[in-house]
Design a protein around this nucleic acid. Structure first.
Lengths: 334, 334
DNA sequence: TTGTATGCGTTATCAG
DNA sequence: CTGATAACGCATACAA
């Protein structure tokens, strides 16, 4: 029982205008058509209230002009940022976006990939932490922050460079005893390079450091235990912390304040991601900012590119530092 | 040039299995089919690697199992929350979501409505502040927080009740001189009832109050001017503020702190929306919390309902109060 | 229960 | 430049 909506078809328009169906199609698609014919067709379209129906074209051409974005959620503001910029980048190229929340659940990821295939989306952009996800071969696929193989392009911030930047910045801000706290996914995913860059820079600068890299996203209490155990005489053993994400950094700062350790006076903290409060106000903590817009646009460019052309297997985009209240530099940036 | 993906069709499967096309369709759709036939079909599907292609069904049935969500963006965490819960509610009903960012731009809203119609989505859920948007009649349409007419269902939090709740709460917390700050959209949109409820409760309680309701989303400086002009001898004329959104409340609190007015000791502040930091941690300010999940599920229920059935024209869902540090109650809630 | 045949709305090919 | 016509993949009414 089809709805009564725009029920006129190109055939109806053609009949009304006294032209052939193909001519209507050409007019609708802006191809070259004789002025007289075009006029007749346009009049008929108005008269009948014709509305284009893309389902015929999809069937015929197997192109939907739609890209699926698979992402855990939009509660986390970093994901919200990503969704935002990917949507804008897609829109700019006249693509529509099908949004798929995976909740980091493997089963749902697989179901969404199936769904995307059935729905003949033109490509998939995915942010997933599932190590053994099977990537479909028959559809352009781009991942964010997660390297699968050379045949699956991955776009990421320069996480390693960000780690280096954080270590140098802490030194520049006068820190002498610094540490990294964060998750250490055992896999070769990109974010784990934040720690690697940090370590590398510390070694190079000859600066002592400590690392707490937890394998699994455990409860916060492990971080708490680490920090508490590094307090002597009400003083923290560190005067600078680099923390894997802004979210964790925020929690750590809350804990430190409860422990009567002042931020940034006693210890300076740098996070990672670049989260602003309400999305557009101040940075929540001093942080290494991911170039989210560039990441989004790169993903869209790659997913649109011809699958047969040379696709890069890994694109790293430059990060930057931003002041967010948890360091001793001036808001006027560095 | 169609891609080579799952190029087998139901016809191919039928041929391989030695059955009729219709039988394959019935197997794929889980309709009753003789066991022998089902076995043959399933074997053929596996052998050929057949993948269902929904474009044929869409053309045939005019149903896409897709709902378009029109929303300004996902940078604002309240919108992120809404997108999240609407997506989950849609997924639960096996609907896919087409996400459309309007940026509050009238032209883009209109373009997206066109697009949604061409793409034959099964419904549209829209959060728009555009007063004179033309709502399509031929497609189920639900709005959030914006009442158009009795024929366009609107789902909203109980904004009026929230205003009442805020006023009463401030009184309960010991305030005696209170004020409302916020936008006052001239239109009959739902959020403007926050102020109305506040006023109503103040009058009823016999409590003096002031209102600063700006017509247009101007710069923050007008709010600043209002507050500065209500300071005498370093004391603010108010000891309680109800502010139209958490976002504005946050900005106001920042300003007050700069003015050396302590929150909550000197003045208690209640916002509206229910924004948590990082989406899942503490509330950013003490606030009237919108029942976002219920709003989302109601929208999906309505947009799915038969257009011919009686649809409610306005659904208001109950709000609640939550402590977020900017009031003098205990975290143990009220 | 299964087979057959038609049509959904469009694009694209090919002949005029 | 335009007209006629054949797919595209599937659901479904109808016949067997």
């Amino acid at each position: 029982m089809a709805r009564e909506r725009g029920s006129a078809t190109m055939a109806d328009v053609a009949r009304e205008a006294g032209v052939a169906l193909g001519t209507v199609s050409r007019v609708v698609n802006g191809e070259s058509v004789g002025d007289i014919y075009r006029g007749k067709v346009e009049a008929a379209i108005r008269k009948l209230g014709y509305q284009y129906n893309s389902s015929g074209r999809v069937l015929r051409t197997d192109r939907t002009d739609t890209v699926a974005l698979m992402i855990p959620n939009t509660l986390n503001p970093f994901f919200g940022l990503l969704v935002h910029h990917i949507n804008l980048a897609l829109e700019k190229q006249n693509y529509k976006m099908m949004l798929c929340f995976t909740g980091n659940d493997r089963t749902r990821e697989e179901e969404y990939i199936q769904m995307a295939q059935s729905n003949r989306v033109d490509g998939i952009i995915a942010l997933t932490y599932n190590p053994d996800l099977v990537i479909p071969e028959d559809i352009p696929f781009v991942t964010i922050d997660r390297f699968f193989s050379a045949s699956v392009p991955c776009v990421a911030a320069d996480n390693f460079g960000g780690g280096v930047m954080a270590a140098r910045k802490l030194k520049e801000l006068g820190c002498t005893r610094i540490a990294f706290l964060g998750e250490a996914n055992a896999l070769t995913n990109e974010p784990s390079k934040r720690k690697d860059g940090f370590v590398s820079a510390c070694v190079e600068m000859g600066m002592p450091f400590e690392i707490l890299a937890l394998e699994e996203p455990q409860s916060f209490s492990e971080y708490e235990h680490f920090l508490v155990s590094h307090v002597k005489n009400d003083k923290l053993a560190f005067d600078g912390l680099f923390i894997g994400t802004d979210s964790l950094a925020w929690q750590v700062i809350g804990l430190l304040r409860k422990m009567n350790i002042r931020v940034p006076e006693d210890v300076q903290v740098i996070g990672f991601d670049g989260i602003r409060i309400f999305g557009d106000q101040e940075y929540i903590v001093s942080t290494i900012v991911q170039p989210v817009r560039e990441i989004a646009e790169t993903c869209v460019d790659i997913v649109r590119s011809n699958p047969l052309s040379n696709r890069p297997s890994l694109v790293c985009l430059p990060v930057s530092y931003a002041y967010g209240g948890s360091t001793l530099d001036q808001p006027g940036k560095a």
